[in-house]
Design a protein around this nucleic acid. Structure first.
Lengths: 248, 248
DNA sequence: CGACTAGTTGAGGCCAGTCAATGTTGGTGG
DNA sequence: CCACCAACATTGACTGGCCTCAACTAGTCG
């Protein structure tokens, strides 16, 4: 356990944070499809509170009862699965505007844990409320379906990566994927700081940390990227894409 | 393309098949949670028609527009993803009572293709109708969420397998998973016939067909299973489970 | 400053991939 | 019904990519 002695996350009321969906900077990411201002206001009412997490602090743990979805406002989190023998594998890294907790719905317990990679802020959406509102707001309903379906698509993409790509391709996909997601958040898509260690990247991509490190070095030698610890600059994204296309 | 010259699947009206959800043998699998007889009748109305597929025939292909979910009544299908270079990877094998097509919802196009492994029969549930009915039937709504969430859980389990297990463990998981699913269908859980080739198993598990074959042989030598082509008998499921637990 | 965590790089081994030969099965047409 | 063919499966020998183990460096925090 990385954060065994964690105190419970401090909770802020909505008013305290003065943050609402209407003026949230990531609103079109977490609920992308057409909601009117009035509908947005109703969705706002579903957000009972927000939570601040310190680096390494868990939002929820595997096995805990599911009762809410979580939208990331600020920061980033990793989702980790527990393997049979107790070791953990990273199932995903999540950026602002992304929704966490979907995996718990089916079994009513979270399968994965969610842990903050840096100090973060998360909106809590009690699922009972979301469900209720969705029944009267078809647009929200569709958003929900889409979010879940996209998660399925994303996971299947990972299965493809883990099942048929070599180390070089995996890291290229990882970097390009991060770049794309940064782009949609109006961050720089060519220059960014990794929020996770080589080990976590490896865990996510199904390889060892040494292999990740070597691959970074190789990309740098080839002039594809520039790495300095966790700072990455993509020098030739097109070439990276070619690496992936060649052999899928 | 495995079935390039496929004619379109022949379509039967509901009356023609005399099959209804109420007396369907797999009903409690595809819609597990409490629906009353009356509600079931309404769900029945959503099933506009059923489709028969010959072995190798596609139910839908990757890239096709999404407009329906599919419930398998009889037979089995595989879901396949197309990699960058055109090769395909199996994303899943599906048995009677399981729902297909969820991946298409998010992008409104199917990401995976679904192809019959044997002659099969499938219920077609136009999503617009499902969606409409779900709005007035909370139980159906919850079923939908659960089905999608379970698919996410399943995919994450695959990520774990592909990311951190060796060949031996992968095949053991595969066999145990099949056994469990057969059990819930009141089939024999210790003796069954594989509906797919070694190559497809390998594609699904992220290994080559030779490795699958060798692993089968090794399990047999060890007295864990008995294999004869596609007929498999689990002689020592407990030992198989131990193989998986040891190293996750 | 020392202890610790994170990252890089090298040497060597092993598991699964590759290539190849051979055996088996199942479907088709005579 | 059988012969034939193609697809599927098994097994062996060899190879190679990633893992393992290990040494070393850099940065961080008390």
């Amino acid at each position: 356990m990385e954060f065994a002695g964690a105190e419970p996350a401090r909770v802020f009321s909505v008013h305290e944070l003065k943050a609402h969906c209407l003026n949230c900077s990531v609103r079109e990411l977490c609920l992308p499809v057409g909601l009117s201002a009035d509908e947005m206001k109703q969705v706002d009412g579903v957000v009972t509170h927000r939570t601040r997490l310190k680096k390494q602090q868990p939002l929820f743990r595997a096995g805990e009862p599911f009762h809410a979805l979580y939208a990331i406002r600020v920061g980033s989190l990793k989702a980790t699965l527990l393997a049979g023998d107790g070791r953990e594998q990273v199932a995903g890294f999540h950026l602002p505007g992304e929704i966490l907790g979907l995996d718990g719905l089916g079994t009513s317990r979270h399968q994965a844990a969610a842990i903050a990679l840096e100090d973060s802020e998360v909106c809590v959406l009690p699922f009972a409320k979301v469900e209720g509102l969705a029944r009267s707001l078809p647009a929200l309903q569709q958003n929900l379906y889409q979010i879940m379906s996209r998660e399925i698509g994303r996971d299947q993409g990972m299965m493809l990566l883990l099942g048929s790509m070599n180390a070089e391709e995996r890291l290229a996909v990882f970097l390009l994927n991060l770049a794309e997601r940064h782009l949609r958040r109006a961050y720089s898509s060519t220059e960014f700081v990794l929020r996770m260690t080589r080990e976590k990247i490896g865990s996510y991509l199904g390889m060892k940390l040494e292999t990740v490190s070597r691959q970074f070095s190789r990309f740098q030698e080839g002039g594809l990227i520039q790495v300095q610890g966790r700072s990455v600059k993509l020098l030739d994204p097109v070439a990276l894409k070619r690496l992936v296309r060649k052999q899928g």
